[in-house]
Design a protein around this nucleic acid. Structure first.
Lengths: 338, 338
DNA sequence: GCTCGTCCTTTCAACGTTGTACAGACTTCG
DNA sequence: CGAAGTCTGTACAACGTTGAAAGGACGAGC
């Protein structure tokens, strides 16, 4: 059986509370008493039961992080950053998969592991605003990814439109004029997908270039296979872009694979820009130019925002949008030409 | 404030315990009473406080999973599998990073989040047997990765020697004779690294081939950069293998990148085999032949082993070694030639 | 009308911890 | 030397839940 305060108290011949005081470094304890209790603690190998402590205190020190899928390196890297950031604040992270399914996302937002977690960081793909409007759970919530609504939850985002425009501008600067966008999904609630497409349109318009439908490659998801499929479909249709801007690095990598199979050389025949800056993009046969969101900043903002809400529950963060920086990282996939 | 049993009880005009009975589907409750209580529950949006429930019951429904680093896709994919497997048993997973540092691993094994977690799955890199011998925490522990010791903890492994031999045999079968091994680290306690090297030696010996030191590429870690460095060092030294067997896919990918930079074509000039079967290996310019451990099986065995220990605490699993299957997946990096 | 049994509901205590309130001892100072 | 203050340790209750056991209502049987 586990050692509890009671056992230590009996061993040291003091009250339970005194042991508790020693454990918590309460100030008014004589050195002699402290030493005696500490000895008993060490002998018995006592460790506080956090469940009980937190039942009493109302805090557990556990944050939940709900992501679509750890198999996606972007989310895995982000999760790693959140875990490290949480650890810096003496918190641990409970991880859950939503599979990017709306139903699971709703479930998680409504009350995941109720009473166990102090806060929830949710990275939704398909969650709708109305799903959140009916939320009753009082666990503080932070959303990751750009959203548009008036709900009292903080969300951490980067400026997707600006980021997409930066990527497209980079390609234009390299002399590319037929720039495809891969990763369009009109049926999805995933705002970043829409915003990146919008950024693509805007930047082309600003350059006085057309944005024909044939250069928009729809995908079923945003994994490597989806990128490959979309690229293949576009090429099969006889469309021949001289550059590709992809929703994310995975889609870009899938596309590059197909370009390679079809004998189109990256970057000579087709330049490619991805999004996310996953480690994978730094080591392929052709390294990938990408928009790099500051993942550590996103993690930091999310955790800090939760902590702030925990400290000050009434001051709800009125849909405050916290913005993280991004930068374009140039690699081989957009080298050369002009 | 959160709604508790007490609130519901007051609203429904019954005792706390009756509400508890309804919540837990206790059998002797009249339908009328059940309906009345259920109505109150729904009105108030009551959700059980798991912390309290589990303080009472002694279980939290939370497993901890401690991994070196989520940035490594193998661990990310494995974590995903564990999360899914845990979810199938109504458990959630608390994730922690060890960074592969012995000190952190010891800390975690000694009592991570004491009293909160029901069990611990630890994937150690540098942990030594003696670190575990002094373990006092009574949380059930399962280790991932091949180990050699007589401690009362289950560990889940694949047969690394056999797996390495299979990989090398595959290369031999393709007519390769100068097969390098990348990822040797003599200073590490990481057994799989030693075992895979041993498998490489054994298979070469079985084929009557030499295993010269120059074909052994030491690395500082096992990431892409480490593989690239080791490969570059070997080539710079004038060593020219016709195949590479790498400790893992990341090292293999780093090596392929360098081979590509030096104008050596994979698989024509140098064939490459990795280990782990991470998704990344399926989409590069040259897809990667790899040894694929059954990650889902590993996750399943780990979770089930923990659950078994929880159900039956006294029957400690005397260092039981549970073995997962593996297979060789042939892709482009070892195509052709003979 | 009384006893007994059955079924439903409640009371009580406990899981391990900490905040509050308080008692006793010891110090300080006029 | 007495009053006031400070320091140290203790008793109690509470966090929200559930198992054990007791309480109460109701109908059946005599």
């Amino acid at each position: 059986m586990r050692v509890s305060l009671k056992d230590v108290a009996e061993r040291a011949g003091v009250s339970i509370k005194t042991v508790s005081n020693v454990v918590n470094n309460y100030q008014h304890v004589t050195p002699g008493m402290r030493a005696r209790v500490q000895a008993a603690i060490d002998e018995l190998g006592y460790r506080p039961n956090l469940t009980a402590r937190h039942l009493r205190k109302g805090r557990t020190g556990i944050l939940a992080l709900a992501l679509p899928e750890l198999g996606n390196p972007y989310f895995a890297e982000l999760a790693g950053a959140v875990i490290d950031e949480a650890a810096a604040h003496d918190l641990t992270v409970l991880l859950d998969h939503t599979g990017g399914e709306r139903e699971r996302e709703v479930l998680v937002s409504q009350g995941f592991r109720a009473g166990v977690i102090d806060g929830l960081i949710l990275s939704p793909l398909e969650l709708e605003v109305e799903d959140l409007r009916s939320r009753e759970d009082d666990v503080p919530l932070v959303l990751l990814g750009e959203r548009e609504y008036d709900l009292p939850y903080a969300h951490i985002a980067i400026d997707n439109v600006a980021a997409a425009r930066l990527a497209v501008r980079h390609l234009l600067g390299r002399g590319r004029t037929r720039i495809a966008y891969l990763g369009a999904r009109t049926d999805s609630a995933n705002r970043p997908a829409h915003l990146r497409l919008a950024g693509w349109r805007e930047e082309l318009a600003a350059a006085g270039l057309p944005a024909p439908e044939e250069l928009i490659g729809p995908t079923a998801g945003w994994d490597r296979g989806d990128g490959a499929e979309a690229m293949a479909r576009m090429l099969d249709a006889g469309v021949r872009p001289d550059a590709v801007f992809a929703y994310n690095d995975l889609v870009a990598i899938g596309a590059m694979r197909v370009l390679h199979e079809r004998g189109l050389r990256v970057p000579w025949d087709v330049a490619v820009v991805g999004f996310d800056d996953i480690a994978e993009g730094r080591f392929g046969a052709v390294t990938l130019t990408t928009v790099s969101p500051d993942k550590r900043a996103i993690a930091r903002l999310a955790v800090e925002s939760l902590l702030r809400t925990l400290k000050n529950p009434q001051a709800s963060p009125q849909g405050r949008e916290l913005t993280a920086e991004f930068e374009l990282i140039e690699r081989e996939s957009t080298l050369g030409r002009r």
